[in-house]
């Protein structure tokens, strides 16, 4: 990771990588969602409502992976004072929050025709809503700290502590009785039939690439702004 410690070297890789991730992800998502909407079979019980899964599961994955990324970057920021880690952590926060919101919204729209309710306070749904609130708090804290010219240490600690919610979300369906069903995809296999599973995996990959492109774009914007601010400060001195 220390290869990327230098922003100039990072930008040399990030600039050409951004369009590749963006277009690659866009094409994969378009293909996967077309398959999911029109080609994949309906479910034997849920019927066509099952098609929401092609959005819900990738969004849930990215909402959680996003905070895992924030936690790792925060650790690198605190322990090794890695100059790019703070930028990366802050760049992940907004897309992470948006995908967590998409996960909750699509889940709600799936729950109504399937369970018969938009929302219930069970362990899985509540812990996912907590993740959204953590993102909002993290973004607000980061902005406040930056305005005061802080180093983002408090924000990084918040990013690390918040990671405790990730195993809670993951295991909520095992620890507590929940309305939400158990895990369908594990390391050893899946309980989703193949014609539904592969569009789901392509969709998750596509959204992940898009997520990467968004994070890179936000990091580049922050680095450029930092450069401008540094120049102006130097010019004023």
């Amino acid at each position: 990771m220390h290869v990327f410690a230098n922003p100039a070297r990072f930008l040399k890789i990030a600039r050409p990588l951004t369009p590749w991730l963006g277009w690659g992800g866009g094409v994969l998502v378009a293909f996967a969602l077309f398959m999911g909407l029109f080609v994949a079979p309906p479910d034997y019980l849920q019927g066509d409502s099952v098609r929401i899964i092609y959005l819900h599961v990738p969004a849930a994955w990215l909402g959680m992976a996003g905070w895992a990324g924030i936690a790792v970057a925060s650790l690198m920021q605190i322990v090794w004072r890695h100059p790019l880690a703070a930028v990366a952590a802050r760049a992940i926060a907004v897309p992470g929050a948006v995908f967590t919101f998409i996960c909750l919204a699509t889940g709600s729209l799936w729950g109504r025709p399937t369970w018969g309710t938009y929302w219930q306070w069970d362990g899985r749904m509540t812990s996912m809503l907590v993740l959204l609130f953590l993102y909002v708090g993290y973004i607000a804290l980061g902005e406040a700290d930056r305005e005061r010219g802080g180093e983002g240490r408090i924000t990084a600690i918040f990013g690390l502590v918040g990671a405790i919610n990730l195993p809670v979300i993951h295991y909520s369906v095992l620890w507590w009785r929940t309305l939400h069903q158990g895990q369908s995809i594990g390391l050893t296999g899946s309980t989703i039939a193949a014609p539904m599973l592969w569009p789901l995996l392509v969709s998750a990959l596509g959204f992940s690439l898009l997520f990467g492109a968004i994070v890179l774009m936000r990091m580049r914007a922050m680095l450029a702004r930092q450069k401008v601010e540094a120049r102006l400060r130097r010019a004023a001195a």
Partner: peptide
């Protein structure tokens, strides 16, 4: 209707 709403939002 729910599927279309979910896709539109996302």
């Amino acid at each position: 209707a729910f599927v279309i709403a979910a896709y539109a939002v996302a």
